[in-house]
Design a protein around this nucleic acid. Structure first.
Length: 224
DNA sequence: CTCCCGATAT
DNA sequence: ATATCAGGAG
């Protein structure tokens, strides 16, 4: 079978690699302790929280899951819950009808196909509805320590594009461009560094370039 | 590409 | 008023 994904990250000059590695070094230094902000105590809770986090702040997700996880303690609880009730329980995270369907169907598949346990491989994770590489990367990495890639969320995408790590727009290609530059042992953490910088400094609306630790290396720097 | 779809910042 | 927030499916 021929490999389906023929995308190859662009070859970079030594100088360009140096610039990107210096950016990574400074960002890691600036945000040494960052990690996942979602609260969870088992793989299922993390899966649910990550699905809820689509187009929603982690803060609000934590607010909702604080109650949600008291009520739903197992995959069976989600699978057997009336859809309308589950939807109402997650309403304030937005896209609540869609997310409720995903969660309920995920729970059903976890019971029927995966022995009641959240899958431990990318291949199986991607069989779950509402789960693509970003969600799968987060769950696999933080629940099981399985690092198969880099979760590309809106922050990672924005920073990767602004800093010149990628020219791509699709998350899967951006992920591959990042994987080509960043050592595998850092894949699990680097997204949180980008996220922290993206939230504090390199904001979507009004980036605070004058406070940025990599402004001299950034092709997108703007005077404020 | 569109749709889902509430809360918050600007 | 509107862009944006840990996206993914059709």
């Amino acid at each position: 079978m021929a490999p389906k994904n023929k995308y190859q990250p662009p070859k970079l000059s030594e100088q360009e690699k140096k610039r990107l590695n210096e950016i990574l070094r400074r960002l890691k230094e600036a945000y040494p302790e960052v990690k996942i902000a979602l609260k969870f105590s088992n793989p299922l809770e993390l899966l649910v929280a990550t699905i809820l986090s689509a187009q929603c702040t982690d803060e609000r997700v934590n607010q909702v899951t604080a109650e949600l996880f008291k009520k739903y303690r197992s995959a069976k609880d989600y699978a057997e819950a009336p859809l309308e009730e589950l939807a109402e329980d997650i309403r304030s995270t937005g896209f609540y009808q869609q997310k409720a369907k995903y969660i309920k169907e995920c729970a059903r598949l976890i019971i029927e196909k995966f022995g009641g346990e959240v899958p431990r491989s990318m291949e199986d994770m991607l069989k779950l509805p509402g789960v693509a590489r970003k969600t799968a990367n987060i769950v696999l990495s933080n629940a099981y320590g399985v690092v198969e890639g880099i979760p590309v969320d809106t922050h990672v995408r924005r920073l990767a594009q602004r800093l010149g790590f990628t020219k791509e727009k699709k998350p899967d290609k951006i992920e591959q461009d990042l994987m080509a530059i960043i050592p595998r042992e850092e894949w699990g953490q680097i997204a949180y560094v980008f996220q922290a910088h993206g939230r504090k400094i390199c904001k979507a609306r009004k980036p605070l370039c004058d406070q940025c630790v990599v402004k001299d290396l950034c092709p997108s720097k703007k005077e404020s």
